[in-house]
Design a protein around this nucleic acid. Structure first.
Lengths: 112, 112
DNA sequence: CTATAATATTTACTTTGTAAATTTAACTGT
DNA sequence: ACAGTTAAATTTACAAAGTAAATATTATAG
């Protein structure tokens, strides 16, 4: 599609994790959140690439914080979901809800 | 991936359409169902490729019916969702429901 | 029998998902 | 002080999923 407004699966879940984590949304935390939610194991880089792509599309923004004085205290990159991202998420949810509602009424074969 | 049990987005929706359409699930009908549900326009071939891949994974089966005596009455290929497909669908739904429920309780920032 | 319709199928390409390898910046222990 | 260890980001390369265009097949309609 020339201009797609739908989210991929990981895109959607990553967006949800960023939203859920609020001011604590950085790579490893996001990864852990997703693993906890879905049971699927995931590398941090997968999260990164996904989020960077989402940033290009305007669904999130990110910034580099200062290095922290703890072991391995490299600067963390934090992510924040933007209004467009929230909307995309809500659209996806609404669509799925509608479909499931439709499905719950039974198959067409049963209906006719 | 070595062994993925998650469904892509279109895979999921196509599976739902097959289920919804019951004994009437063939290419064009599935495409129309998806377009109606999501508002996204889609070529039939996209549906096909997706469903064929799903068939390889054991989520659906398909068969070619007899040609019908109507204009353009080429043999239709019908699809049917298999138990594995139903399960995958239910897993996907359950996961999303859990995540949404979690999100609805507020962000971590708000919580703490 | 040529045009038109409805469908399936193949092919090729784009976007999304994913891990492995690499780099950076701090602490810890000696 | 400096070698090792830890936590993180970033790059790179490739696999899987999404998608349309082109092609083929089978039938009716003029």
């Amino acid at each position: 599609m020339t201009s797609k407004s739908f989210l991929g699966e990981l895109e959607q879940i990553a967006l949800m994790a960023v939203r859920r984590l609020g001011r604590n949304a950085y790579g490893a935390a996001i990864r852990d959140e997703i693993e906890g939610w879905t049971g699927r194991s995931l590398s941090v880089s997968a999260v990164y690439v996904t989020l960077m792509r989402l940033e290009k599309k305007g669904h999130v923004r990110s910034w580099l914080a200062d290095p922290t004085p703890v072991r391995g205290g490299k600067a963390k990159r934090y992510f924040e979901i933007l209004p467009t991202g929230v909307e995309a998420l809500q659209r996806a949810r609404a669509t799925m809800d509608r479909i499931w509602a439709d499905l719950d009424t039974g198959t067409e074969a049963e209906v006719q």
